[in-house]
């Protein structure tokens, strides 16, 4: 079962060195570090990472995070992991976590039902599973955003934020995959896996919620009902 869950975004800028000489978004980095530190502090049997990717797959747990596909002069490659799992790897390494890991990707196109089933399977992987959910909101939050402004983006992200804040993960399970895809909200499939793994979370804490470069980032900690 899931003992604790943490939610982090997975922009490349979170990886060491990628933004060059300027450290961008120190507050986001701090929130991620706090969330992951809290997560691994639960003394879990394993940390299970779930993050969106092109396809649903289980990745070798010893895979070294590397961002050569995004920053070829900074990293030597080869990039063994999809972006979301690589960022999770960096966060876990930075938190000093060296225990067992499950690295699971979930297809960005996976159906809500398939995502929730994947979440339930992860929850069953060990008696004490700490779940690290990697997911980003819409990349269409402003005119300067990668996907340009879409007026539907802010209400969509607000729905996600409210669901996390209230621990009402059924609202995540109900997110429309087509709308999420239109809004470049890649976190949808991973959030719905979370909804399957831990349907109700009476205790939640939102550590960060903003879209500083037009992409919505959300950091939160969640404690599921026993």
């Amino acid at each position: 079962m899931i003992v604790r869950a943490a939610l982090c975004p997975s922009p490349p800028l979170l990886a060491p060195g990628v933004t060059g000489q300027t450290v961008l978004l120190p507050d986001l980095r701090q929130a991620c570090a706090a969330a992951v530190g809290w997560l691994v502090g639960a003394a879990p049997d394993t940390v299970a990472v779930i993050g969106p990717a092109a396809a649903t797959a289980t990745w070798p747990p010893e895979s070294v995070p590397d961002l050569a596909m995004h920053a070829p002069a900074v990293y030597a490659g080869p990039s063994a992991l999809p972006l979301a799992l690589a960022i999770a790897g960096f966060l876990l390494d930075a938190a000093g976590y060296s225990g067992p890991r499950i690295l699971q990707s979930v297809a960005e196109s996976a159906s809500p039902g398939a995502c929730q089933q994947l979440g339930r399977d992860l929850a069953a992987a060990a008696p004490r599973v700490a779940l690290l959910v990697m997911g980003d909101g819409s990349a269409r939050r402003s005119a300067a955003a990668p996907g340009y402004l879409d007026d539907r983006a802010e209400p969509f992200d607000a729905t996600v934020e409210q669901a996390i804040r209230e621990g009402n993960l059924a609202a995540l399970a109900a997110l429309d995959p087509d709308l999420a895809r239109d809004l470049l909200a890649t976190g949808r499939s991973a959030w719905q896996a979370l909804a399957g793994a831990a349907p109700t979370c009476p205790q939640t804490e939102l550590l960060y919620s903003a879209a500083p470069f037009g992409v919505a980032y959300l950091v939160a900690t969640l404690t599921p009902a026993p």
Binding site: P11, P12, L13, G17, V18, T19, G20, Q21, T22, L24, H70, A71, A73, V74, A139, P146, P212, F213, G214, V215
Partner: peptide, 17 residues
């Protein structure tokens, strides 16, 4: 130097958010 890969960029964000 940055083209050579010897120098970190001053501030990179394009496509990385």
């Amino acid at each position: 130097e940055s083209i050579k890969g010897n120098r970190p960029l001053a501030r990179a964000i394009r496509g990385l958010a």
